[in-house]
Computed example of a mutant assay.
Amino acid sequence: YISSFALLPEYRGHGNGARLFSTGLSFIKKRVQSVQEMVLLVNEQWTGARRIYDSYGFTRTAVLPDAFPHSAGIVMQFTSE
């Protein structure tokens, strides 16, 4: 279980988020032999993060209107085949 992670503004926009997310996924997959499903919650305003999750095959499954202060949360899911 990973609670959350974020990048300081000066580290955004240079591929660091994708590298960090990729490293996290690799860490999980090495320790859990048969990952069948992953679920995450992302602030609807974090478009960069959502693009990263989309690129790794996560799909939008639900919207939680009041998940964050002043913003909805998007539930995204990855299911291995």
Rank of each mutant, 00 (worst) to 15 (best):
F78Q: 09
T47V: 12
L25R: 10
S34W: 00
R50G: 02
W46G: 00
P9Y: 05
E37F: 02
H14K: 14
P9D: 12
D54Y: 11
S4R: 09
F5I: 08
S80R: 10
G13W: 02
V39N: 11
L25T: 04
T79S: 15
S22L: 11
A62L: 05
S3M: 05
T23Q: 09
V35G: 06
T47M: 05
F58H: 05
T47K: 11
T61E: 14
G13Y: 04
V35T: 11
S3G: 12
M76F: 09
H14D: 01
R31S: 12
S34I: 02
Y53C: 03
R19Y: 03
Q77F: 02
L7C: 05
V32W: 10
A18N: 03
M76Q: 11
A62D: 15
I28G: 04
N43D: 15
S55W: 03
S55L: 03
H70F: 12
S4L: 05
A49K: 00
L20V: 13
M76N: 06
W46D: 06
S34R: 07
Q77S: 11
V39G: 01
S26W: 03
S3K: 11
P65N: 10
V75I: 15
T23S: 13
L40V: 02
A72T: 06
S34G: 07
Q77I: 08
Y1A: 10
F27L: 12
Q33I: 10
M38S: 03
E81D: 15
V42I: 07
R50C: 04
F58N: 03
Q77W: 01
Y56E: 07
A18I: 10
L8M: 07
F78N: 04
G57C: 11
S71G: 03
F21Q: 02
Q45S: 09
H70N: 15
E81I: 07
S55D: 09
T59S: 11
F78H: 12
R19E: 15
I74V: 15
V63L: 11
F68C: 06
L64F: 08
T79D: 09
V63T: 15
A72K: 11
M76V: 10
R60N: 13
